[in-house]
Design a protein around this nucleic acid. Structure first.
Lengths: 205, 205
DNA sequence: TAAAATATTGCACTGAGTGCATAAAAATAC
DNA sequence: GTATTTTTATGCACTCAGTGCAATATTTTA
């Protein structure tokens, strides 16, 4: 097999021993080849055997890296974005109120969605009922994370319901903005659509 | 093709020929026995063979009635509630604004959730990641339906974004209310928790 | 270099879901 | 009534996702 794969990749793969490096390399390679196959052949038409073979591992080993086929598609977004949202929100201590804090946070993070793969991934996420459902669950997770961050920033048990409502509204605006962004084929940056939808919500209540 | 389909709708199973009656009976029986098995043994531990045998049909025939195991669990809610929501909303013509219309509609429909099976079904819907995701998707469908009803009631293309935001907020409040209702083991009717959460949202924006 | 820890693999298995061909049953035509 | 057509039920064989287990290979450590 191939010995050292320098792997400049997006983030550093410099740390740990041989084991950890290999693990990360395998993980990245499986995710990358899997995504490519999904884009080329569709999600359902891509079998685990195809992914395993293309990634140079055995079928059985695949499951030491991902617990399902879906996870290959969702891994990055599902892992990175919630953390980024939480961290981003916790930096908003200077705000006196949750709503403007959440908005500023989302405007900062919106650009994370503007990657070249976004469209292809979203197409895939709409291609089956199970994946569409996962996408919804992902947004619900964001609501959860955002609400909890607010609870930490403005600790007051009687405010938690309000925090959840605000988080729902904020993530709702994000969803609408991303829909618009894709509908208009990324004509403007995501932040632009976010602003548009914000003005809608603020004129309503 | 089928000639007369009297369609008594949700209620009586009196209509149609022998074929239609049998079909409905089988459908109901599979759903009922399936749900019972899910409650008793858990969703994953219940196999299609168990359901088929308990319902007195062959495994293969199961798939002429439901396209997946999940559908057995989701069939009723996913079919009835969206229609009820749409119909309920269309009756709110006398309202001048979407938000109070949606709220009155939800307050009317809330009692639909107060069935004896609600708790058991919800427990099941939380038991696996796939089912949790389906539940989210269900609420998203409600948002969609509600938003479209508003578009029909107050036709104005430039208002559609506002309608979607209002629908998201309304369904969001419903979700929070149902969570509260279950958390407090149905101490008060759903409408009570709905009112509580409404006051939260209306004090925020 | 030896021993312990961890990763990889193959094999056999369960269970969901589908395609296809055939038999049974119901609706319709005669 | 019987013949015909349409719809439904079933069995069989298959693909594919995912898991448990045991054996092998690789990395770490002692």
């Amino acid at each position: 097999m191939s010995e050292r794969i320098p792997e400049t990749e997006t983030g550093q793969d410099q740390s740990g021993g041989l084991r950890q490096r290999k693990r990360r390399e395998n993980h990245n390679r499986i995710a990358a080849t899997g995504l490519k196959l999904f884009i080329d052949n569709g999600f359902e038409a891509t079998t685990l055997d195809m992914i395993a073979e293309a990634a140079g591992i055995s079928r059985r080993t695949f499951f030491h890296y991902f617990k399902s086929k879906e996870e290959v598609l969702l891994a990055r977004e599902t892992r990175d974005f919630p953390d980024a949202l939480r961290n981003g929100m916790m930096k908003m201590r200077h705000h006196v109120a949750p709503w403007p804090a959440a908005i500023e946070c989302l405007l900062t993070l919106a650009s994370r969605y503007e990657t070249r793969d976004s469209f292809a991934i979203d197409r895939l996420l709409r291609s089956t009922a199970a994946l569409r459902a996962r996408k919804c669950a992902f947004y619900e997770e964001l609501e959860q994370v955002l609400g909890e961050a607010m609870d930490e920033l403005w600790p007051a048990p009687e405010q938690q319901a309000a925090h959840r409502v605000i988080a729902m509204a904020a993530i709702g605006v994000l969803r609408l903005a991303l829909d618009d962004w894709r509908r208009e084929s990324a004509m403007y940056p995501v932040a632009h659509y976010l602003q548009n939808n914000l003005s809608v919500i603020e004129s309503q209540f």
